[in-house]
C-alpha cells in the first residue's frame, strides 16, 4: 500500500507554498519514453531518460543541490506542458531558464550555454561548437560537455553531430537522437 495521491498532493502543495523545497520533480510521458524533469527556483536542473535509475537521479539532486526533494505536479506543470507541445511538433523553443548547479566545470557550462543558441532544425559539429565556446581545439571536451549535459532537450545536445558523418553519441541512445532530429526536420530526407 502506498499513500493516497490526495495525501501526497496536499503535502507537496503545502511544502511548495511554504518554500520548503530545494528541488521539485515529476515524470512526463513522451514518445521517447518517460522523462524525469526536475526544477529549482532558478530553473530546470535535470532531465533524465528512462534508463537512468530515477532513485539514483533523485539522490544526485539531493546531494548536489539539497535534500528537500519533493515530487510536485504543479511546480513542474509548465515544463511538462512545453515538452508535450514540443513532441507534438510545436516549433517554439524550450527556452526555460536552466539551473546548472549539477554542472561544475565552467567550460562545460559555456559550451552548453552556446549550444542553447542552436535552434530547432539546425545542427552544429563538435568542432564548430568548440570554436563558438572560444576553444577551437577542444572538440573532445565539447563532446564530454554534451555527454554530461544534465538537461537534455532543454539544452539541445542532440543537435551536435560529428564532422565525420553519422549522428554520433547521445546520452539517451543514438536512436533517440535520430528521432529528435527527424522530429525537428534536421535530418535531410
Amino acid at each position: 500500500m502506498s499513500p493516497s495521491t490526495e495525501f501526497l498532493d496536499r503535502l507537496a502543495s503545502a511544502a511548495v507554498a511554504e518554500g520548503l523545497t530545494d528541488v521539485t520533480y515529476e515524470f512526463v510521458s513522451t514518445p521517447i519514453g518517460e522523462l524525469l524533469v526536475a526544477t529549482t527556483e532558478q530553473g530546470v536542473c535535470r532531465v533524465a531518460f528512462q534508463q537512468e535509475d530515477p532513485s539514483g537521479v533523485l539522490e544526485e539532486l539531493a546531494w548536489n543541490i539539497g535534500g528537500r526533494v519533493v515530487r510536485s505536479a504543479s511546480e513542474t506543470q509548465q515544463i511538462r506542458d512545453a515538452l508535450a507541445a514540443y513532441f507534438e511538433g510545436d516549433p517554439a523553443d524550450l527556452s526555460f531558464p536552466v539551473d546548472f548547479s549539477l554542472m561544475h566545470s565552467s567550460f562545460r557550462r559555456t559550451v552548453l550555454e552556446q549550444l542553447r543558441n542552436v535552434g530547432r532544425g539546425h545542427v552544429v559539429t563538435y568542432g564548430e561548437l568548440a570554436r563558438r565556446a572560444g576553444s577551437p581545439r577542444a572538440a573532445r571536451a565539447v563532446g564530454t560537455a554534451c555527454a554530461t549535459n544534465p538537461v537534455p532537450l532543454i539544452v539541445p545536445c542532440h543537435r551536435v553531430l560529428p564532422s565525420s558523418g553519422g549522428v554520433g553519441n547521445y546520452g539517451g541512445g543514438p536512436e533517440r537522437k535520430v528521432f529528435l532530429l527527424e522530429l525537428e526536420g534536421a535530418l535531410g530526407a
Binding site: P3, L58, E59, A62, G67, R68, V69, V70
Partner: peptide
C-alpha cells in the same frame, strides 16, 4: 556516498507515510 547521506526527502515520504499514518 556513505550510507548516512541525507536521502531525497520524498523517498522518506513514499517509504514511510503509510506506517506513520
Amino acid at each position: 556516498p556513505s550510507i548516512s547521506y541525507l536521502p531525497p526527502f520524498w523517498t522518506l515520504v513514499e517509504n514511510h507515510a503509510d506506517e506513520l499514518l
